[in-house]
Design a protein around this nucleic acid. Structure first.
Length: 439
RNA sequence: CGGGGCGUGGCGCAGCCUGGUAGCGCGCUUGUUUUGGGUACAAGAGGCCCCCGGUUCGAGUCCGGGCGCCCCGACCA
């Protein structure tokens, strides 16, 4: 993208409504614009980040055998009356009436719809297990939206739903999701620690929240350092083997981790002092097992091996995709702006042309840009160098390829790494290789 | 939903108390200048002062009603 033609309205001053750092930076960097309280329009750069996050989540869901579908945003009230939640959900649900006076709602979640879809198609235990997911906009009419996209009313979420014929199968599905989550967040370049969550009336240990560690997080967190030391991508877990899944699950849940509501000071004492980590976290994912709650209430059963019908066991697994954009910024920024982790950055690198019009400088910039036009943003604007440095820092591109007449005359490109501030000078060919390698 | 605040060019704000026909900084346009960390000067463009009603000779300003947005709390992916 050439910045001179990009729809990327950057702000020098912070809009009054933005309080927290991620909200301020998202507005200043031109990632989003608010259109109503808690509702945002995503501009090109912000959308690229959103899509990057969704892409990682999809790849990890696909990897564990979940299948993507796409359910609508609007749902019939009838569906929710069957589960009993239409009346139970409360004013957070946005209710709508169509021209025929039929009651609809803008979905805050999709358990009812997926259960109904599943039940309409699957009739035998032989077709289980199944895990279906989708990435869709949801709406919850929060009393008080705030924190930009982190607590919006409309938000993009990945939600997955597993159907199994036994409790043991449901547990395996749950553990596969846990692995997918740990891998997803690690790939996004952030640390998200799974914490035991309140399981409510169902009980058991099959409910975890994933919190990204950030000083501005809404919950206090306590966890064993081993949870942030593990490389989940390197672990070999056999997704089809229950023993392997169990061993993996043990490695995760064997270490203490809890939010302040669930914190157990006595157990905390058993963690060696040097491995105790305390901080704050932002919830970006939640996985839980809920058994036959919906299959039963909605009368969705399948035939078992003995010919008798039974209610499949379900679990549900959510990731706040749009919230993650804000949460990642909360976890990764400095005074100058955003510091995007590689994998989610809107562009891999920015090319800063310090003197548009200078023949040698333009030539090098154009060569760099042409090597990967979709992965690079080229600051070819007729602005001063200082403006470009500041905007590039604000936008948080992992790499800045700085080209000015001084270096260009010698065929040199200066590379600045946003995360460390480290600078190095290299030849054009070396810079091209760097772009191609993506690191 | 309780408490508080705000709504004035694109953004940040002043003006309102004490009514007299709208101003500042940034941004934008043009020119000159500058050219490796938000350059300087000059000349410009741009405003239904959130909306409706009332008081008044006259309302951005006072009064009433509405709408929108933000902050604290309770609540939450």
């Amino acid at each position: 993208m050439r910045l001179s033609r990009a729809f990327q309205p950057m702000l020098k001053e912070t809009p009054a409504e933005a309080q927290i750092v991620s909200h301020r930076l998202m507005l200043r960097a031109g990632l989003v614009r608010q259109t109503a309280s808690g509702i945002y329009a995503w501009l090109p750069a912000g959308l690229r980040v959103l899509n990057n996050i969704a892409r990682i989540v999809r790849e990890e869901q696909d990897r564990i055998g979940a299948q993507e579908v796409l359910m609508p945003t609007l749902q019939s009230a009838e569906l929710w009356k069957r589960s009993g939640r239409y009346d139970a959900y409360g004013p957070e649900m946005l209710r709508i009436r169509d021209r025929h006076e039929r009651d609809l709602l803008y979905g805050p979640t999709n358990e009812e719809m997926i259960t109904d879809l599943f039940g309409g198609a699957v009739k035998s235990y032989r077709e289980l297990p199944q895990t279906l997911y989708h990435v869709q906009w949801k709406f919850r009419d929060e009393i008080r939206p705030r924190f930009g996209v982190m607590r919006g009313r409309e938000f993009l979420m990945k939600d997955a739903y597993s159907f199994d014929s036994s409790y043991e199968g449901a547990v395996a599905s749950y553990r596969r999701q846990m692995l997918a989550y740990l891998r997803s967040f690690q790939r996004m370049g952030v640390r998200a620690v799974p914490m035991v969550a309140d399981t409510g009336p169902i009980g058991g240990d099959l409910s975890h929240e994933f919190l990204i560690l950030a000083p501005t997080g809404e919950s206090g967190v306590f966890y064993d350092a081993s949870l942030e030391e593990q490389d989940w991508l390197a672990q070999s877990v056999d997704l089809d083997d229950e023993a392997s899944l169990e061993a993996f699950f043990g490695r995760v849940t064997g270490s203490y981790a809890a939010t302040d509501e669930m914190h157990d000071a006595t157990k905390w004492e058993t963690v060696p002092a040097e491995r105790r980590r305390e901080g704050r976290g932002i919830e970006v994912g939640h996985i839980f097992y809920f058994g036959t709650k919906y299959t039963e209430s909605m009368g969705i059963s399948v035939s078992g091996a003995d010919g008798a019908p039974f209610f499949p066991q379900m679990g549900s697994y959510g990731v706040g995709i749009s919230r993650l954009v804000g949460a990642i910024i909360e976890a990764s920024h400095d005074d100058a702006g955003i510091i995007w982790p590689e994998q989610v950055a809107p562009w891999r690198a920015a090319i800063l042309n310090l003197k548009p019009g200078d023949q040698a400088t333009d030539a090098i910039c154009e060569t760099l840009y042409a090597s990967a036009p979709d992965a690079l943003v080229y600051d070819d604007r007729a602005d001063r160098a200082g403006v470009k440095f500041n905007d590039a820092d604000l936008m948080g591109h992992p790499l800045q390829l700085i080209v000015g007449p001084r270096g260009a005359a010698a065929g040199r490109v200066e590379v600045k790494r946003r995360a460390t501030g480290e600078r190095s000078e290299m030849s054009l060919d070396e810079a091209l290789a760097l772009i191609a390698s993506g690191t």
